[in-house]
Nucleic acid binder design. Structure first.
Length: 439
RNA sequence: CGGGGCGUGGCGCAGCCUGGUUAGCGCGCGUGUUUUGGGUACACGAGGCCGCCGGUUCGAAUCCGGCCGCCCCGACCA
């Protein structure tokens, strides 16, 4: 994209409502604009980040054997009456009526709907297990939206739902999702820690939330230093396979054998047993939550399949959520400095920005156009009129992993300056080696 | 939902208490000149239902009432 023709409204000053770093930076870098309390419009730059995160989530869900589908945002009230949650969910649920006065709601989650879909089509134990997911906008009428997209009322969520014939199968599926989640966050440059959690309104008895550490997080967390040493996930495929129940078991054991808890679940007795020098506390942001809830919905909604003996069996289910839009804020919380965002390569809206420091200079123009043509959609070309200071400041603010600085001095010699945003390291290189470094 | 605060050009704010000329400042924006290697300087200029409705008054951004919106602190959540 050419910056001169892009809607990327950067701000020099911080809007008054933004309290935390990610919110401030998302507004200043032109990623989002608020349209109502807790509801945001995603501008081109923010939209690209959102899509990148979505893509990683999708790839890891697919790798775990989950099938993508897309359920509607609007749901009929009857389904929620069946599960009993129409009343339980309270004011968080946005209720609507259509022209025929039928009761509808804007979905805060989809257990009922998926159960309805499954009971219509799944008849036999032979069709199990199944994992389905979708990435769809949700609405929860939070009492107090805050922290920008981290606690919005409207938010983009990946939610997956699993059905297994029995408990043993459900546990394997649960572990699969845990593995997929750890890989997902890892790929975004985040260190996530699974912590035992309350199952809340979803119900059920096995539940973990995935917390990433950031000083502005909403929950107080306690964990064993072991989680800081777990870098084997980053070594890639060598580790655990979704197909192997044994691998999944080893993985799950590894993840759950060290102490980790949010303040709600904090167990002082267990904490005392952790060696003092290995105790870590801090603030955390919840970016994912997985639940095994057994037959809670299948039973309430009459979902059964024929078992091997021909008799009906009530399947075991689970649900698995990742806050996709929240992750945009969470990544920024985890990776920024005074000057702006520092995007991890995998989620960056652009791999590189090309800074043309001298519009109209033949050598500069030629070099920039050439680089831009070769980088294509991977690059943002800052082709605005010459205001070097503004360009540098905006580039830092927007946080592109690489900055290619093309000025008349270097261009005359056919050289550019390549700067790495994260380290600040810069070097004079040929355009070819700049392209090679950026990859 | 309880407690607090704020609504004045795109952003950040002043003015309001003590009503009275064309409603001001900084940033941003436009034009020109000058600059240009880390938010360049100067000049000129555009841009405002002073959140909305009603009341008081000769006269309301300013006083009074109601409403709406937004933010912050607490109890809940991907």
């Amino acid at each position: 994209m050419r910056l001169s023709h892009s809607l990327i409204p950067t701000l020099k000053e911080t809007p008054a409502e933004a309290q935390i770093a990610s919110h401030r930076l998302m507004l200043r870098a032109g990623l989002v604009r608020q349209t109502s309390a807790g509801i945001y419009a995603w501008l081109p730059l923010g939209c690209r980040v959102l899509r990148n995160i979505e893509r990683i989530v999708r790839e890891e869900q697919d790798a775990a054997g989950a099938q993508e589908c897309l359920m509607p945002t609007i749901q009929p009230a009857e389904l929620w009456r069946e599960s009993g949650r129409y009343d339980d969910y309270g004011k968080e649920m946005l209720r609507l009526r259509d022209r025929h006065d039928r009761e509808l709601l804007y979905g805060p989650t989809n257990e009922e709907m998926i159960t309805d879909l499954l009971r219509q089509s799944v008849r036999s134990y032979r069709e199990l297990p199944q994992i389905l997911y979708h990435i769809q906008w949700k609405f929860r009428d939070e009492v107090r939206p805050r922290f920008g997209v981290m606690r919005g009322r409207e938010f983009l969520m990946k939610d997956a739902y699993s059905v297994d014939l029995d408990y043993a199968g459900a546990v394997v599926t649960y572990r699969k999702m845990m593995l997929a989640y750890m890989r997902t966050f890892q790929r975004m440059g985040l260190r996530a820690i699974p912590m035992e959690a309350e199952s809340g309104p979803i119900g059920g008895d096995l539940s973990h939330e995935f917390i990433i550490l950031a000083p502005t997080g909403e929950s107080q967390v306690y964990y064993d230093a072991a989680f800081e040493e777990m870098d084997y996930l980053s070594r890639g495929a060598g580790g655990f396979r979704h197909e192997s129940a044994d691998d999944l078991h080893r993985f799950f054991t590894e993840m759950t054998s060290h102490y980790a808890a949010t303040d709600e679940k904090h167990d002082t007795a267990a904490w005392e047993k952790v060696a003092p020098e290995r105790r870590r506390e801090g603030r955390g942001i919840e970016v994912g939550h997985i639940f095994y809830f057994g037959a809670k919905y299948s039973k309430a909604m009459g979902f059964s399949v024929a078992g091997a003996d021909g008799k009906p069996v009530t399947p075991e289910m689970g649900s698995y959520g990742i806050g996709v839009s929240r992750l945009v804020g969470a990544v920024i919380e985890a990776s920024h400095d005074e000057a702006g965002i520092i995007w991890p390569d995998a989620v960056a809206p652009f791999k590189a920005v090309i800074l043309n420091l001298k519009r109209g200079d033949a050598a500069c123009e030629r070099l920039c156009e050439d680089l831009y043509a070769r980088l294509g959609q991977a690059a943002l070309y800052d082709d605005r009129e010459d205001r070097a200071g503004v360009k540098f400041a905006d580039a830092d603010l927007m946080g592109h992993p690489w900055q290619i600085v093309v000025g008349p001095r270097g261009a005359a010699a056919g050289m550019v300056e390549l700067k790495r945003r994260a380290s600040g390291e810069r070097q004079e290189v040929s355009p070819e080696s700049a392209l090679a470094r950026i990859g």
